[in-house]
Amino acid sequence: MTARSVAMTIDQVAVRFGGLVAISDMSFTVGEGEIVSLIGPNGAGKTTAFNVMTGFLTPSAGHVTYQGTTLTGLKPHEIADLGLIRTFQRTSVFPNDTVYDNLLIGLHRQGRVRLLDAILGLPGARASERKLRQRASELIEWVGLERRAHDLAGSLSYGEQRLVGVALALAAEPSMLLLDEPVSGMNASETHRFVELIRSIRDRGITILLVEHDMPMVMTVSDRIVVLNYGRIIAEGTPDVIRNDPAVIEAYLGHGAARA
């Protein structure tokens, strides 16, 4: 592993739901500009970890630090303001808005102007609005949804909605992006395109933490992999190390369940 500065530190995080231990004593770091994958069977605690990192859940113990800021007690929108942006495992779009308007909503962080300026239609607010519209078009083009731009997001196919979800997250200008099973429900060619997309996101200097079940994809795209089982980290390393780790093969791949 090359020496790079740490973007995110997860330090002894535990999450309990009543009696159920969803995560116990989880510690790992993600370096700036790195692509790290968090894998593990269903129910291992991956989404729960995302919820902790983005302020949707308060951990029972431990804490998460992002670029020097401890996230404990911050609300989701405040964490988003630090540039830490996530996508959701279940499809999540603004269904009654067009794809284009979805992105305009996603560009919220870029479009903050004084309310009075917006109401009075002052030049500053107008210029900001023009910039947002242009940016929205660029993002739509970037994920390849130009032909769907003026359709309602709720009317799109599952795979297309997942792309809208990623475009929305990118609209928020992340410095780190958390992707929760982004290619589930995508066909092979869509998945292939998506891998290219992830690489180009990383090439823009955006750190990526990926949760994904698609093993071939995880193995090609990741710099490093963290394996979770029953809320516990059982292995951590490069794709080659993980592929040959007996504990991982036993707990995860070994059950013949690439889609566990």
């Binding site: 989701p76 942006i85 959701f88 999540s92 603004f94 909503i105 919220h108 609209a171």
Partner: peptide, 16 residues
Amino acid sequence: RGLMENETLAVSVGID
């Protein structure tokens, strides 16, 4: 509008 349609998603892109 974003908050009304999907609050979880709205806060995740930074809407207070």
